[in-house]
Amino acid sequence: MQRISSWTDLVTILGLFRYGTAAGGVAPTPLKAEWLNMIQEELANFILAYLPELDANDNTQLFKAIQVFGASFPLKATTVAGYGILDAYTKLETYSKPETYSQPQADWLLSKKANNAISLAGYGILDAYTKTAIDALLAAINASLLAKQAAIDDLGAAKQDKNTALMAATGWHLDKATGFLEQWGSGSCGADSVSAAINFPTPFAEVYNCFGNKVTPNAEDGDGNAAGARAISPTQYQLFNDTDKYSATIHWRAIGKAPGY
Rank of each mutant, 00 (worst) to 15 (best):
I47Q: 14
E220N: 02
G190L: 04
V80L: 13
L166I: 05
G122P: 08
D221E: 08
Y83G: 04
D175T: 05
L31D: 07
A121R: 04
I134M: 06
A71D: 10
L126F: 03
W184S: 00
P30L: 07
Y123M: 09
G124R: 11
K91E: 09
G190D: 04
K257G: 00
L54C: 02
L54E: 01
K97M: 02
T21R: 05
D161I: 14
A133F: 04
K91G: 01
A71P: 00
L16S: 10
I255M: 09
D192G: 01
N199W: 13
A114R: 04
D135Y: 04
T130F: 11
F211K: 06
A177T: 14
A49K: 12
G70I: 00
G222R: 00
I13Y: 05
A49M: 06
L110V: 10
L155C: 09
G25A: 06
G224C: 04
K76F: 10
G124S: 13
P30V: 00
K176F: 08
A147I: 04
R230A: 08
N59Y: 13
A169I: 02
L109H: 08
Q103I: 08
T100H: 14
L86G: 15
I47A: 11
Y19M: 14
Y129M: 05
T216W: 03
P217E: 13
A258S: 01
K159F: 07
I141Y: 06
N142V: 07
A22M: 01
F211V: 11
G24W: 07
I13T: 11
A196V: 10
E53V: 05
G124Y: 01
I250L: 01
A157Q: 12
F17M: 08
S233L: 10
N225D: 09
Y19H: 13
G24C: 09
I232T: 15
D223P: 00
V26G: 01
H251F: 09
F240G: 06
W184D: 03
A77K: 13
I13L: 12
R230E: 05
P52H: 07
Y19F: 13
P74G: 03
R230K: 02
I255L: 11
A177S: 15
G82P: 11
K131Q: 14
Y261G: 02
D161S: 15
T100C: 02
K162A: 07
W252F: 01
K245Y: 07
V207Y: 14
P52L: 00
T60W: 09
T78L: 14
